[in-house]
Design a protein around this nucleic acid. Structure first.
Lengths: 91, 91
DNA sequence: AATCTATTTAGAAAATTTTCTAAATAGATT
DNA sequence: AATCTATTTAGAAAATTTTCTAAATAGATT
């Protein structure tokens, strides 16, 4: 886990696009890949980065692999940001 | 601006450490650099990335350069995350 | 069991990022 | 004006990331 991995995963346009795409339900690797102008292999690489970061989970069904958001990690990241909301002792 | 730049800036341990370090007030480049086991030039590079991303601002005083958090960009990032809180239409 | 379909893995090339050393800048002090 | 102090910029080397093509896997269909 670790924020390094999570923020690195979030730091790429394609990967953030994939996350947005998964907001309203799971999608197969193929469906996801078809939205991008890159090979399926490359999109598969991005999915693996998101999966390693815990931002998505996979679910096999027939010979498809469906991906969906893992919202709990989003909440962890939100929590990281709350460190910057107040809590500072003046200056 | 743009999220690409902001998330890239956040995706490095050293840079996130710098941000945490700036929570309770501004610090000079030298003070910041002294907390890391790397050259001042390298820390300066990280500061430039954070500055480009809008996460910090600089302020010259004597021959020091002080850096401080720019909280408004943190709020923008928080907003990005709210896209993943509900808003999804079942499925 | 042969083939098809969806997807990933391996390996290499290209691009980007991180770090360093050395030199440059620029304001402060002598 | 010479020097010192704090910091950045330039350029290069090393490390990491992104992308591709080709091959591998694995379940589904014929």
């Amino acid at each position: 886990m670790g924020f390094q991995e999570t923020f690195k995963a979030l730091s790429d346009d394609v990967r953030r696009e994939i996350l947005l795409m998964l907001r309203n339900g799971k999608k197969s690797a193929g469906e996801i890949a078809s939205c991008f102008d890159m090979t399926n292999a490359t999109v598969s690489y991005h999915l693996s980065i998101l999966k390693k970061a815990g931002l998505i989970t996979e679910e096999k069904e027939k010979n498809y692999i469906f991906y969906k958001l893992n919202t709990s990690v989003f909440e962890d990241v939100m929590m990281w940001f709350t460190q910057f909301k107040d809590g500072k002792k003046s200056e």
